[in-house]
Amino acid sequence: MATESHGADEGGLVFHPMDQFIVKPLMGDGPVSMFTVTNSTLWMIITVLCVIGLMVVGSSRRAIIPSRVQSIAELAYGFIYKMVEDVTGKDGVKYFPYIMTLFIFIVFANFLGLLPRAFTPTSHIAVTAVLAMLVFVAVTVLGFVKNGAGFLSLFWVSSAPLALRPVLALIEVISYFVRPVSHSIRLAGNMMAGHAVIKVFAAFAPMVLISTGIGLVVTPLSILAITAMYGLEILVAFIQAYVFTILTCVYLKDALHPHH
């Protein structure tokens, strides 16, 4: 879409780096309503299929000596289980399926988004904000249900000098409410930034077609940069899923054991 309007009259970016994030209906060209099947929906469905393929089909043989797919599934299970157990303690283990759901969704959405021409649902603030708000609301409700008013002691740092405590309480309250914001923007921002940077380099890559002189320098450099960024993005895709999950565990621990 952008190719015609930009490439023709500007000679700058051949396509716009943010165009890849446009949510558009898969069939037809109408407006996006609540239940329209869009490209975002498509990739979420592919994510679900991959999750089923890994976790259900992969483990269906129940082999004592696992196949490759089954050992990946077991690795993911063990990784998240250990994380939940280490960070939140024994009583956090019963929330393990929820945390596993978050992790496996984010990690698959991130990795599938790295495929060329794919769409990354987690690069959208709407998606990550819902994920973060789910965690925030669940953790807050859980904290009050489990501890009653004692949950408020999370904000009252009893180890600090008495005079400092109100100030610290204010800071703690602010930081508590900023949590979902940073939690969601970190994930969406990382995904968006990496994909946009790759797209920017990709726009420079065909420079050799426009101007052979500069192009001989710019084109190899940008292809090299795309490769390097892609490698970094593979790392980031996993690390962001890991960070999102471990922060969820940390917040859950705060809700279960609010006393500092």
């Binding site: 949510v23 996006v32 309503s33 609540m34 239940f35 329209t36 869009t38 975002s40 929906t41 979420m44 649902p121 959208h124 709407a126 998606v127 819902v130 994920l131």
Partner: peptide
């Protein structure tokens, strides 16, 4: 947003 949140 509504679409994305619903499908999410």
């Amino acid at each position: 947003f509504g679409n994305q949140i619903f499908w999410l």
